[in-house]
Structure formats: C-alpha cells, structure tokens
C-alpha cells in the first residue's frame, strides 16, 4: 500500500513537471508576445519591460528560472492586471471555484446515487422510464446550455414572482450558489445515475441479497446495508473523472453566472494571452487534477478491500 502510494505520487510529480514544461513550450510558441498590445510602446520602455519580466534572457535560462520559481511556489506577476501576483489571484479566486465545485459534486453524487437506486428498484416501471429519459437528456446537453437555461429560468421565475427569489448572477450569499452548483452538477449527476442503476441491478440479483431476503431481514435494512453500500462502490471510481469534468465545467458556469472563480480568470487570461496567469493557473489546475485522481484511487483501494492496489 505504501509502496503503491509512493509510486503513484512519483508518477504524479512527473506528470505535473511535464504539464509545466508543456505549458512553458506552448507559451513560447505563441505568435506575438505579451508586451505587444494595442498601445504603441517605445523601444526603451519595451526593453525595460523585457528586463523586468526576464524576456531578454535566452530561452533555456528563462525555463530554468521559471522552474525554479515554480518549485518555490512563485508563479510571477500578471501581465494584464498590473501588480497582481498570480499566487494572489489563485489564493483569492480558487476558494470560490472550490465551493462551487464541492457543492456541485455533493449534489451530483447524492442525486446520482438516489436516482440510480430508485430506477433500479422500479426497473422498467414509470419512474425508471422517466428518470432514464431525463438522464439521457442530461448526458446529451452541454454544460453551457444548462447554465444558460438555468439563468433564463431564474430570470423568468423572478419576474413571475415579482421579487428576487434567487439572484441571477454574481457571488456572495448562499442564494448565489444554489442554481450555479445545480447546473454544474447536472451532467455528472446524469452520468452517475446511469452507473448507479447498472451497479444496483447487478447487486439486486446477487446471492448475498437473496440470502438476506431468505433470512427474513426487513427490506429497508436489505436496501441500505446490503444493496446500497455495495452498489455505491463503482460510483467512487468515477469520482476522479467527475472532478475533472466539474472543474472544467466550472469555467463555463462561472463565465455565464459572472462568478469570480479561478475558472473565469483562467478563461479570461487565455483570451487576453496573459502569459504568467495562464502558466500559473494551468500548472495549478494540472497538479490539482492529477493529485485528485490519485487520491480517489487510493480512497477506492481503502474502501473496497477486494481491490488490490499495485
């Protein structure tokens, strides 16, 4: 177990190093450079700026400085937002994204497990048919369409009621969080419902459930202790990819709902070619996702003793 954990961590570090290097190479391949924008800059100012950001040094030296700074956890200063350190941007805005993402994943997991179990219990009856139809819809509609529809519904509901039930955009109160996190979790919830349903159907016909039933255990106990607990296990395996889906889905939801999360800053930085912010947030997101997947795998091995980690 320890050896496996160490091996995965080393692999993770190598992956993150590759991400950082690829980001550096990508940034240096971009046509144009961060200092050329619409304002004309005199050669002297340009030279000073290049010195300030270290752009006048040879590429290899820039790479070493960049890697050295990154090891110290310093991502540099933003090009477009003057005097703002990338570390500060991440520190201020990642918590917002994290709250949104955690709410979304809790919502998706609870909803997915509940609906999935329900459809399996009512297999081929009306609730199953209705929920599975919604699930197919949930898998087929892109997150930005959900976000737009969620916002549109909110506007209409508020107009219908004559007062603001929930704010349409922005961030700050609990009311701001509800609809964006629901919208963000929908796709994952649909996916988890489907997975939970097939896993539940497998469990329902298993021997130990039949044994439990023949022993005369109460149905609720069988459902909770024997069926649900065992059926939930495969759901944990896809939590890693789900976290990735919700993280990137967050870019869009934050954009549509004007939420000051890191995703929105990342997309903005990409559009404005803010080099240091792109590099910093990409490496940060990359490391976050890589280690999340490792964490989920370790948790799975811990929860399900049948899985041999090696």
């Amino acid at each position: 177990m320890l050896a496996y954990t160490l091996k995965r961590l080393v692999q993770g570090v190598i992956t993150v190093w590759f991400i950082a290097t690829a980001t550096f190479i990508a940034m240096h391949n971009v046509p144009g450079d961060p200092l050329s924008n619409d304002k004309a800059v005199s050669p002297e100012i340009r030279k000073n700026l290049e010195e300030k950001y270290g752009l006048d040094k040879p590429v290899m030296e820039q790479y070493l400085i960049y890697m050295g700074n990154m090891l110290e956890g310093d991502f540099g200063i933003s090009f477009t937002q003057q005097n703002r350190r990338v570390n500060d941007i991440i520190r201020e805005h990642f918590p917002v994204s994290a709250i949104l993402g955690i709410l979304a994943i809790v919502f998706a997991a609870l909803g997915g497990i509940l609906w999935g179990a329900l459809t399996a219990l009512y297999r081929n009856k009306l609730p199953d048919v209705i929920i599975m139809f919604l699930v197919i819809l949930g898998i087929s509609v892109p997150s930005f369409v959900f976000a737009a529809l969620g916002q549109l519904t909110l506007v209409n509901v508020n107009a219908l009621l004559g007062f603001t039930l929930l704010p349409v955009a922005g961030w700050g109160s609990v009311g701001h969080m509800i609809v964006p996190s629901l919208v963000l979790g929908l796709g994952t919830m649909a996916f988890l419902t489907r997975l939970m349903r097939s896993s539940m159907l497998e469990v329902v016909t298993s021997d130990y459930v039949r044994t439990a039933r023949s022993k005369g255990l109460p149905p609720t106990r069988i459902f909770l202790k024997h069926q649900l607990r065992n059926a939930v296990l495969p759901v944990i395996t896809v939590l890693g990819p789900s976290i990735a889906a919700i993280t990137t889905g967050g870019f869009v939801v934050e954009l549509v709902f004007a939420i000051p999360g890191l995703g929105r800053y990342f997309v903005q930085a990409v559009q404005q070619l803010d080099y240091t912010v792109i590099m910093g947030t990409t490496v940060f997101y990359g490391a976050f996702l890589v280690f999340m997947v490792i964490l989920v795998d370790l948790i799975y091995g811990w929860v399900d003793p049948r899985v041999r980690l090696e």
Binding site: I19, A26, M27, T282, Y285, G286, L289
Partner: peptide
C-alpha cells in the same frame, strides 16, 4: 488533464 491541454495546444 484533457481540456487544459486542448486549450494549451490551441494557444501554442
């Protein structure tokens, strides 16, 4: 991370 790399590729 798939989409991050798609975006990086696009920028590069």
């Amino acid at each position: 991370p798939f989409l991050l790399f798609m975006i990086l590729f696009k920028i590069a």
